[in-house]
């Protein structure tokens, strides 16, 4: 059986994965990665985000940047659902290695138009080996 799942690009769309591996502050990569995601959302591609290494800190809740003079851009992640970016894969081991649990992450949700606009969580906790499978299934991986 050939499905669109097995033939990425067959319908003219590609699978884009944005890989986030760095802490939200300290370097600009996280912020400028998010800018790519928001612009890319207009292109009707199959978009996913991956968070591992220090990238998991990007979506930790309760971020307060007053002391470092930087704009707290973390609320933008919660708006991703409005851009139809609904798959945020977070690596379980990366959380554990940093003493974090899924409860430490922001509530990032989307409204599922195929399910009477039910509100659903966008964050999906996956194991390191599952993450490798997710990455292997992509057409374009942009790692910032």
């Amino acid at each position: 059986m050939t499905t669109q799942e097995e033939l990425p690009g067959a319908s003219g769309t590609k699978r884009f994965l944005y890989v986030n591996r760095r802490a939200p502050y300290g370097t600009i990569y996280a912020l400028e990665s998010l800018e790519v995601v928001l612009i890319g959302a207009a292109f009707d591609q199959d978009v996913s985000l991956a968070f591992f290494d220090d990238g998991v800190y990007q979506i930790v809740k309760g971020q307060d940047t007053k002391g470092i003079g930087m704009k707290n851009f973390s609320p933008t992640y919660r708006a991703l659902g409005d851009y139809e970016v609904t798959k945020l894969y977070v690596e379980k081991e990366a959380l554990e290695e940093r003493g974090l649990s899924p409860d430490d992450l922001m509530d990032i949700t989307y409204e599922d138009e195929d399910d009477d606009w039910a509100e659903k969580p966008s964050i999906r906790i996956v194991s390191r080996s599952e993450m490798t499978e997710i990455m292997a299934a992509q057409d374009v991986i942009l790692s910032f």
Partner: peptide
């Protein structure tokens, strides 16, 4: 130009090398 040019590069290229 804009970031859309990067997305377009991903769509139109066989491989994106970063």
């Amino acid at each position: 130009s804009g970031l859309g040019q990067l997305i377009e590069t991903g769509i139109e290229s066989d491989r994106v090398v970063a």
